[in-house]
Amino acid sequence: MKLGLLFPGQGSQFIGMGKDFYENSELAREMFEIASEAIKIDFKKLMFEENDDINKTEYTQPAILLYSAIAYKLFEQNKNFTYNFSLGHSLGEFSALYSAGAMELADAIRLVHERGKLMNLAFKDKVGSMMVVLGLDDNIVEEVCKDSNLKVWPANYNSDGQIVIAGIRDDLVKLEPVLKEKGAKRVMLLNMSVASHCPLLESAVKPLKELLDEYLKDEFKNVVSNVTAKAYNTKKEALELLPIQLTKPVLYKQSIKNYENEADFFIEFGGKVLMGINRKITKKKTYPVTDMASLEKVINL
């Protein structure tokens, strides 16, 4: 049985994430301790109690990675399996790298915490955001962005008829009526202040590369790049691809289409977002691991 491992990105966070794992697994509790020590923050409070930090990108990113990492490790602990690739959506590519053995947990937590801070810094003098567009072909959205002369770009190719664009918030608002006039079924501005996967994050590319050079191991299992929709497995390749992932669109649907024949089904660790998107891309099933009950179901497949 061939598995495809999936890891969700930012936006999948919620209060209570990982709590069932924490309460029922010694391994999960150990991983919480490692993460908390890595960046000197109490992840139990961050993830289990109402707070504002959970939606701040420098904390959201390590929280999601920790949740996904625990889900994966508990699966690995209880199931003998092999896989040809792991694939993450945006931030999820870093969770995929952890699963592939590219980093230790503490280093992965530190890395995405710093990545979040670098992304915030890039927007200290401007307000960015992202916007979901439903019901239009990719080429139409691309043309609208290009012809607008505004600071807006395609950012996430999620599925046919679902694309996310990123840019300056006011420019995105100006584009709403244009996209609806072109036939978009829905245009929804997201509650974000950072525009991911567009040229506005160029200032974060070099410092992220320096961090990656410090934390990455030389070789690891196959991870599918958001930038190329192709697998890589060396530090050299990662140092070329992961920094520019900040400024390039996420080729998620292209990645699934490229690798669906190498998996009998997919498992999403720490979320259900990609499971929903996958229904529009592939006939292969996606099973989520979000708590002990869903873990048990997937183990027994």
Rank of each mutant, 00 (worst) to 15 (best):
F14R: 15
K19E: 15
Y22C: 06
N24V: 02
F32M: 07
D42M: 03
E50R: 12
N51M: 07
D52P: 05
T57A: 00
T57E: 09
T60E: 01
L65R: 11
A69L: 02
Y72L: 04
K79W: 05
G88Y: 13
E93G: 10
F94N: 00
Y98H: 00
A108E: 10
H113L: 11
K117D: 05
K124T: 10
D125K: 13
M130K: 00
M131G: 07
L134G: 11
Y157E: 10
Y157K: 06
I163T: 13
G167A: 07
R169L: 14
D170V: 08
K180F: 07
K185F: 04
R186T: 01
V187A: 04
S193K: 15
L200W: 03
E210K: 13
Y215D: 07
V227C: 10
A229M: 03
E240Y: 11
L242D: 02
L242S: 08
Q245S: 12
V250S: 03
Y252I: 04
N258K: 15
N261C: 09
F269K: 03
F269V: 10
L274K: 13
L274C: 13
K280S: 15
K283H: 14
P288K: 14
V289E: 01
V289N: 05
T290S: 14
E296Y: 06
N300F: 04
